[in-house]
Amino acid sequence: MRKFLGQAAIIALSVSFASEAFAVEWNVSVWGKRRAFTEHVEKLAELVKEKSGGDFTLNISYGGLSKNRENLDGISIGAFEMAQFCAGYHRDKNPSITVLELPFLGVSSLEQEIELSMAVYNHPAVKDDLSRWNATLLMPSPLPQYNIVGIGDAPKSLEEFKGLTVRATGGIGAAMKTIGAVPTSMSATEVRQAMDSGVVKAVSFAPHAHMSFGTIENAKWWTTNLNPGTVNCPVVVNTDALDSLSDKNREALLGSVDESLAHYVDYYNNKTMKAWGPALEERGIEKITFTDDQIASFKEAAAAPAAKAWIEDNTANGLPAQELYDLVTGMIAAKK
């Protein structure tokens, strides 16, 4: 009997060790705090754990693993297995996906932003671009059109933006420059301090970020319809880590992307946007709405020159820039 029990204990112990050996934990680097912007990552972690029977876990860290501008670097050296970053933080590191940040593309919904992003992410030139960082694009973090909150006197015309210091990255920054504003690129976590200290007088963000990073706490005005564009912030995985997953765990991960994005869109539309209007009203923030003619004038000044410059610069650097631009604009035109 003792011999039988001893053998049973050894078998049980072996099974336990085998289970632990096959368990996989990934570290995920994001920043700020849990908010609409990270809901798809949170949902992905939940689904992966459920579908793998607990054998695959995503440990999400809000700023504990890396600075947000260094997440792509961390992925490249395998410091963590998954991360979120924004293309506009370092355009030279991921030029191919900055086509999605060009001003006035005319994207009308989060669902369309997802469709465009995934089409670009799956383009061979884009895959090659990100492979330089040992990164595989997993999913976007779709954001609505950006608008601006500011302190001081509200600009009632495009001319009144002249000289205004505004936090604006990527294509939005380029667009603001065409109307005389002075764009400054900084990460989201730096914005509130910059605004409070007067380094910038205005901030370009999507609604969730204005609420999450406190830019509306001292703001006096908000542009309701400037809509110069948005930023593209993908979630990427370390390619070696992805390749090392078992078939079951890889399917748990890749097979959960669509559901995670659907959860994100529902959360953004039905929670974040419903909270946005009341948040402005509670603080007495003035809403500035520009005329159709003013918006048309802004678009004419910003859109074509930015697209032309982007195509020329990236073609010179070896990207099929015209092809990528045509892919995006063609998909948008087909929906109109």
Rank of each mutant, 00 (worst) to 15 (best):
M1Q: 07
R2F: 10
R2H: 07
G6T: 04
I11A: 15
S14A: 15
S14I: 13
E20A: 14
W26Q: 07
N27A: 09
V30N: 03
G32E: 10
R35Y: 10
R35T: 12
A36K: 07
A36G: 13
F37D: 15
F37S: 10
V48L: 06
G53C: 05
G53W: 12
T57N: 14
N59I: 01
Y62Q: 11
S66G: 01
N68D: 07
N71R: 11
L72R: 08
G74W: 11
I75E: 02
F80G: 02
F80N: 07
E81I: 01
A87K: 09
G88R: 13
Y89K: 03
I97F: 04
L100P: 00
P103N: 08
L105K: 03
G106N: 13
V107Y: 13
S109A: 08
Q112A: 05
Q112P: 00
E115V: 05
S117E: 01
A119V: 03
A119W: 06
A125Y: 12
K127N: 07
S141M: 12
P144M: 10
N147K: 07
N147G: 08
I148Q: 03
K156L: 11
L158H: 09
K162H: 13
K162S: 15
L164G: 01
T165L: 06
R167V: 06
T169E: 11
M176G: 02
G180V: 05
V182D: 10
P183R: 09
S185G: 00
T189R: 13
E190K: 12
V191S: 14
V191T: 15
V191N: 07
V199P: 00
A202D: 02
V203P: 04
F205C: 05
H208C: 01
H210G: 05
E217H: 09
E217I: 01
V231S: 14
C233R: 09
V235S: 06
V235D: 08
N238K: 02
D240E: 14
S244F: 08
S246C: 02
N249K: 13
E251C: 00
L254Y: 05
L261E: 11
Y264T: 05
N269M: 14
N269A: 09
N270M: 06
E281P: 00
R283Q: 09
F290M: 08
F290A: 04
T291P: 02
Q294A: 15
S297C: 00
A303Y: 14
A304C: 00
A304N: 02
A309E: 15
A309I: 06
E312Q: 13
N314G: 03
G318M: 12
G330A: 05
